[in-house]
């Protein structure tokens, strides 16, 4: 396998593009209006690129395909920007399972896969769902979710916390291993996990023999979306052997960047930080404040990636 490249030290967040706002749904809807024109999204990405942030998270929102198409046409920008897909777009599954039921939704989604892969799965599916078929189906679902990004450069793929945490709760952590193998083998990038239960996830991954897992979770002084406690999460981040990406660092805009990043400055173990882009006019200042309090970030990005493996 070819060497996997290290992830970017600063990754632009995507929530405001798609109307996601954890502090206020009303504010989220306002942002969605602002970014209703895809050109505005590309404009923000260009602004990020100008200040040396050439990485962006991207959920597989229904509009992701449109954004990807417009982005792919910007040849000089697209050669530098790396996309970090967050799969799947969970609202699609929540609303879709309300609309037609979970099983119908999964089969409809699989229906979007390329014909050859679909046929292979159907042939196996006819004999009942056996373990290999389930694995095959999970791989295919991932491929379908990643279709919108096929012409773009990926930095890493992240699994949505709803799925990571459901697998964790159900005791199905080995699904995470299937996910990781598939992403690394098929896309040649690191397979990250997003979670709202960082200490528990880390314990379970280590029990399965994972070393240096790439994990993204909320970390902020307000303790917003941090479970089961800020103290336990802080301890988990500090313990060596975790490739940690901090998100919700401003607690959805509740904290001022200076206060928020001063807090993160206590954690030299942080590998990468996701920066929200809702404050477009303040973006440069925000990134500057981040670099000031976490000066190691940009150097860390050029290091060799942590050798990560699944020991069995």
């Amino acid at each position: 396998m070819t060497a996997i490249e290290p992830i970017d030290p600063i990754i632009a967040g995507h929530n405001s593009f798609f109307g996601v706002d954890h502090l206020s749904q009303t504010r989220g809807a306002e942002k969605a209006e602002k970014f209703a024109n895809v050109e505005n999204i590309v404009g923000v990405l260009r602004l990020c690129d100008d200040i040396g942030v050439s990485a962006v998270m991207m959920s597989t929102h229904p509009r992701a395909a449109e954004v990807s198409r417009v982005l792919a046409a910007q040849s000089e920008l697209v050669s530098r920007i790396r996309i970090y897909p967050l799969v799947p777009y969970i609202q699609k599954y929540v609303r879709g399972s309300n609309e037609k039921g979970l099983a119908n939704l999964i089969f409809d989604t699989l229906g979007q896969a390329p014909l050859g892969q679909r046929l292979a799965l159907m042939l196996k599916g006819g004999k009942g769902v056996m373990h290999n078929d389930l694995e095959q189906m999970l791989r295919l679902l991932l491929d379908v979710e990643l279709l919108p990004f096929k012409n773009l450069k990926l930095g890493a793929v992240f699994l949505h916390d709803a799925l990571t945490d459901l697998a964790l709760g159900l005791g199905l952590e080995h699904i995470l291993t299937i996910y990781r193998r598939h992403v690394e083998e098929t896309y040649g990038v690191q397979a990250g996990l997003t979670t709202k239960n960082l200490p528990l996830l880390r314990d379970r991954l280590e029990a399965m023999g994972w070393t240096n897992p790439l994990v993204m979770a909320s970390l902020n002084a307000a303790g917003f979306y941090v479970n089961p406690s800020l103290e336990q999460c802080a301890e988990t981040v500090r313990r060596p052997g975790l490739d940690f990406v901090a998100m919700s660092t401003l607690a959805s805009g509740h904290l001022h960047p200076d206060e928020a990043y001063r807090y993160l400055g206590q954690f030299p173990e942080i590998r990468s930080v996701v920066v929200g882009m809702s404050r477009r006019e303040h973006l440069e200042e925000t990134v500057q404040t981040l670099r000031q309090h976490l000066p190691w970030l940009d150097n860390r990005g050029r290091e060799e990636p942590c050798p990560s493996e699944i020991r069995e």
Binding site: D165, L166, G223, V226, A251
Partner: peptide
């Protein structure tokens, strides 16, 4: 009071506290 003011952590979060 906003979502951050009101947030209380839980033992395990799957789909919302």
């Amino acid at each position: 009071w906003n979502a951050v003011d009101l947030y209380r952590p839980v033992e395990i979060d799957i789909g919302g506290p």
